[in-house]
Amino acid sequence: MTGLATLLVLADGRLPAGGHAHSGGLEAAVSSGRLRDLAGLSGFLRGRLATTGRITAAFAAAACVAARTVRAADADADADADAGHDDALDRHRLDALDEGLDARTPSPALRRASRVQGRALLRAGRAIWSVDPAQRDRHHPVALGIVAAAAGLPPAEAAVAGAYGTVSGPASAAVRLLGLDPYGVHSLLAELAGECDRLAALAAARAGDPIDLLPADSAPLLEIGAEVHANWEVRLFAS
């Protein structure tokens, strides 16, 4: 049985999956002058959690369900050659979730950033847990679901790692970029913990929904900012 510590390992910002290189749109918001202080960061994190965070939680949970089924089918197939009939269906579901994220990410820069982080997470997952080596090029939320499944975590925990990751990354970037008070920044994260849990529970409850019905909340300035940011010659964060 997998315990809470496994979730901590997966959600830890120190997991060598390249997350520290991304600011989740925070660098663009800071450089454009939209975000200057703790109050600005609070609004930024709330907006990001309600949009990107909600989508990430939903797709991580849905991918975790599909990846767990694939793994169970593979295990059955090892024991009994007749089993694994809906294996292909769930692999297809992972592809469809990936396309669903393409459709929810109009910004090419954000699509690239998501795939870069997804590939890095799958690479880490292969080294740490037994992630299917065929899964290489995925959007980050789908990769998170796949890795969580390999680590033995349930969909709700994949979702909570996803939701929390969308705010913890920019929060630590804000400390580095703006020199904000780390206690103040972590107070914001603690305030958002309940919302992360709520989004994760929703995500797990709707993990089997048709892809078009999964959340699609957008943040226009994250998309516009990402395109602007990708054109800079010098930047501290990859996105």
Binding site: R46, T51, G100, A219
Partner: peptide, 19 residues
């Protein structure tokens, strides 16, 4: 494309620097 936009009192952080 699947793209939703929510504003108003029920939409958390909608007027903040991310949205």
């Amino acid at each position: 494309l699947r793209n939703d936009l929510a504003v108003g009192p029920r939409a958390s952080g909608w007027s903040g620097p991310a949205v």
